[in-house]
Design a protein around this nucleic acid. Structure first.
Lengths: 162, 162
DNA sequence: AACAATCCTATTGCGCACAATTAAATTATG
DNA sequence: CATAATTTAATTGTGCGCAATAGGATTGTT
């Protein structure tokens, strides 16, 4: 199983690109996979906390924005979450079904749909009190470490999207 | 003293948890969201590169493992990818349909399914040559920066899963 | 040998993510 | 004013991710 490729790690290297170290293609060497796997791990860690209040993680993210803004359009929500209407429309329908938000066309521009927190939706914020600190504890990071990592990831995301 | 929720951002703080800074609950302040959004950004960045060779990003990750190991069980693959059979079974069926892998029961332990690269699957590695360096360029990171971030995320993931 | 416990994969159901398409409203342009 | 271009949301189809479940296969125990 130890072929020549594995000795050099450069079976993929046609010489036209800058040389990368041997084994760079290995799964566990890759930044993208570390990000991917960490995102799933966050999801798994949040799940038991959120199912107590009947939210999924993406729904919780949407609620976080709504707790800041109270009312906004689908488009504005999508810009903050980096999601499009194909993802948000069914998600928001489920939040509406759960009685947490209402959706209505903007009278001034009927293309837009305004998403608004209900009283029940506002009240739910109170139930999320310990989630944040529980999750921070699970990360094992200090606040400073978490902020540093967050900043580096935000910059990375901006470069990937740009 | 009794402070206004909106001023302090601590409507959620019941006093039983360690105090977090004001605005800690804001979406763009959170590490988990930065990880989540960066994972999606990686996905979007990989998509145009991978669709040239007919793979999705999770399929590409599975192929990365197979290019290292050539043959392994569904379980072993799942351990490396942090995925279960509910995710891998249909994914591997699609790879089989595409002629990249074969699947067969292990004769010595018929509970297990062995996934093996076909010649076509092995050959595909040649086509992935520039993907790695293209993606590294898109991140705008140096190798050292990428490795540092990768290490921090791997440690974080381990703590979240542990 | 018999039976229970465990292991491994597949299936089902639900929700997220995104591309492509459709439909309707608004804005821009001739 | 007419109509072309743009904007916005919803819908459809495909694939990932995971919980719950089921069905065999293996292993452990007595």
């Amino acid at each position: 199983m130890a072929q020549d490729d594995e000795m050099t790690g450069k079976a993929w290297d046609d010489g036209a690109s800058p040389a990368l170290p041997a084994g760079a293609a290995r799964l566990d060497n890759q930044l993208c996979f570390a990000v991917h796997a960490t995102a799933h791990a966050f999801n798994r860690a949040y799940r038991p906390l959120l199912e107590k209040i009947g939210l999924t993680y993406p729904q919780y993210l949407a609620m976080l924005v709504l707790w800041q803004e109270n009312e906004l359009t689908v488009k504005a929500l999508g810009e903050q979450l980096f999601l499009d209407s194909g993802t948000l429309s069914p998600l928001l329908k489920r939040l509406e079904q759960a009685g947490l938000v209402t959706r209505r066309r903007d009278a001034r521009d009927e293309r837009q749909v305004l998403v608004t927190l209900t009283e029940k939706g506002k009240a739910m914020q109170e139930e999320t009190g310990r989630i944040l600190s529980t999750m921070l504890a699970k990360t094992g990071c200090t606040l400073d470490e978490a902020h540093e990592l967050r900043d580096k990831l935000q910059a990375l995301r901006a470069r990937l999207d740009g």
